[in-house]
Design a protein around this nucleic acid. Sequence first.
DNA 1: CCACCCTATATAGAAATCCGATACAGTGCC
DNA 2: GGCACTGTATCGGATTTCTATATAGGGTGG
Lengths: 110, 110
Amino acid sequence: MRMTIPVAKVLSALLADAEAPRYGLDLMKLTGLPSGTLYPVLHRLQAAGWLAADWEEVDPATAGRPARRYYLLTAEGVHAARQALAELRALAPDGGTSWGGAEPTGVPAW
Amino acid sequence: MRMTIPVAKVLSALLADAEAPRYGLDLMKLTGLPSGTLYPVLHRLQAAGWLAADWEEVDPATAGRPARRYYLLTAEGVHAARQALAELRALAPDGGTSWGGAEPTGVPAW
DNA sequence: CCACCCTATATAGAAATCCGATACAGTGCC
DNA sequence: GGCACTGTATCGGATTTCTATATAGGGTGG
């Protein structure tokens, strides 16, 4: 699973609110991603085994809307998502980053 | 400027340590990015006006190594980088995200 | 009825991005 | 000469993003 910002947004939304099940349009609004980005991400997450999907069982005529496809992180997905987001947080400083690197290199004449 | 994780890593490294000037190999070690990823990122940042670059003025024979190309964030770059990293931080929860979205949607039968 | 908007999911195709491989060049060492 | 190290940089295939577009049923208004 390659971590990208859209993937991180989806994982973040799926992790929030006690891992409540989400459906596509819901995730589009939460993440701000267009459907053409979101659905491929969801498919990749499923292929990676991080995400499970199931059709909502309702009669469209009764519900007055199309059936939704609900997504829920697997146990592995929850774990992986937490770890991935933690790594992301590591490079977004709160005060000063100072993630163990080399000390400032020689300043140019400039 | 499209924000991606490699771009964020570079910005983070450039912001750290009081915005000390950095050169390519230095940034490769700090960010862990391969040169094939790093240099295109640096070029894009320059094209966006976020980054300034200048050749170190040394005699390679005297220094015992090739001249370095130093990179420093512009004023605009510093501002933009801080903002971009803040947005990244927003989606990497520390405790609970709860970034104002819709409340949990109806749970599936499943 | 028919147009139109809303909820939903999904794909096509062009553009952008990432990353392993490769290139180039000078220094230092054996 | 050969090899390792410091540096910067590009190429090309694979992946990813994103703008359109497709599909389909429900509800509303003329």
